[in-house]
Nucleic acid binder design. Sequence first.
DNA 1: CTGAAAGCGCTTACAG
DNA 2: CTGAAAGCGCTTACAG
Lengths: 319, 319
Amino acid sequence: MITTSEDVAKHAGVSRATVSQILNGRGQRFAEATRDRVNQAARELGYEPSSAGRTLARGSSDFVIALIPHTTFGPTLQDFFSRMTDELATHGLTLVLRLSTPSAASLGRVIASMKPAAVFSLTRFTDEERALIGSRGVLGLDPDSTGDTDYNHAIGLLQGRTLIAHGHRRLAFAHLADARQDPFGADRELGLRDACLEAGLPEPESIGLDVTPDDAARALDELSGTGIAVACYNDDVATALLSAATRRGWRVPEDLALIGMDHTTLGRLTLPPLTTLDFDLETAAEAAIERILTTTGHADATQHPQRHAALRVVPGGSI
Amino acid sequence: MITTSEDVAKHAGVSRATVSQILNGRGQRFAEATRDRVNQAARELGYEPSSAGRTLARGSSDFVIALIPHTTFGPTLQDFFSRMTDELATHGLTLVLRLSTPSAASLGRVIASMKPAAVFSLTRFTDEERALIGSRGVLGLDPDSTGDTDYNHAIGLLQGRTLIAHGHRRLAFAHLADARQDPFGADRELGLRDACLEAGLPEPESIGLDVTPDDAARALDELSGTGIAVACYNDDVATALLSAATRRGWRVPEDLALIGMDHTTLGRLTLPPLTTLDFDLETAAEAAIERILTTTGHADATQHPQRHAALRVVPGGSI
DNA sequence: CTGAAAGCGCTTACAG
DNA sequence: CTGAAAGCGCTTACAG
């Protein structure tokens, strides 16, 4: 019922060793006729190598684990990972997603049992995670280890620079109050802080809120009055603040300026529409995929030039 | 560096066979002292069995693959799968997430190589997927196969009944125009249709839209005038329609009634706030987890009574 | 250019 | 009550 390399070998009239070599791209030294027969046989029989067998023999599997942050997994991230799944698959790597849990213990178990080729994360590993990954001798890829652009810092920076370019002088960062939902908040606030620094402005204020009318109103009270420009964790946060501000008669952007992040569809529905940032996911995914392929030895480092993920300001009426 | 069952065996002064039996819960027949020594040794050495070795020996792995629909993966679904991950882990099963792709081919490859204990999906398998899963002899769990409540039908039904109970007589269903984002739409519309049927009302109208101001406005034009009550695919759709209606001076709910789904935080921010449905995820997750455990033989069928997932109407001002 | 053999880490009859 | 042995499906030196 299930086709093994043995079946393929018989069908092609060669040994399992030969089948293995050829199917894994190490078949240059074989006669072309042999290669054809083997490939042919594999195709005819619908052969799919057993991951378990291969993992046991090789010591590590073809799985790549992507840790997904406990944040809204919208179309943007979906597309990112869809793309990554497909692209890695063409190189024989299987991407599986794992929700990142507060405790790293379960990650440890998964790594030990799967022996993945790599563990990838869009966000920085926690110290615990890093230790775990290292101790198992697994390749860990996070923004730090890959030397990739730190997108989150760049996001805060761009939000800040954009606000400042529009003449704003008193800035604030608005987090999501629920820390689990705010995985990128700290880095983004640092970016905003640096924008203030380079412009000689005072440090930004910092608030946190739940995306509810009441809590957004409460958060507004935490600001030191009107005339502040707020860089928001995402468009939802910006929408909540916009709604609360409107409700109390503050004009946006005169009394409160807001810049969001994510360029969500709902952010287009507010009045005024949000000014926000758009993340060029395509480029970011490209870079991440290439990192994985080269570090796992599945592609040449020089094959594709390294590109930079582009952040773009989406004009609106809120700053 | 990596601890094997051999290491544990030596450490405990027994054979690998014994270690295997005891660590897999088939150790009743061993002397208590032996069991203790083995468990102790495993703990001391931080032993994590190799999934590959076990899979090879057993023929199937401890992985459970959850197919995640190409839809917004918000906090609701996140919590659902987090819970499932943890719960299955305590029974030795490892949940991995796969984005469901349009083509089932990649699923086929993953199944063949991982030999999962089960493939789980919140949405009905496509025929292609079902065939694939069956041909590999893998356990497939979707709403059909488990005989679980068809949540989506129930959602449309409840939306319809709620609207009708409020005196609405002309109903419509609003899909997301992008079919990939609308995986549950068809079933929900059927539920709405049945609500109309049982009340002796004409069939609901059907529209589809993107969540943008312009497209929502266009969608309103598709309705046969004012005085219609729309059951929306989700709160985002309802928000878009609400925004477009307000813009053109329609009163909600007098000229256009709207009921959403998901009870999102942003849906609380509209004026009027949306009437919507809340899904008792806890119960649903419970049921799904139990299904997986019993069908894979990891728990007794009678251990927990089967509960029903509860849908709840969240009052608002939009119907 | 190709194959026989050993081994990866586990489990499962089977024998004692 | 416990262990020796075979086998799961693959890959990798090594020999020819």
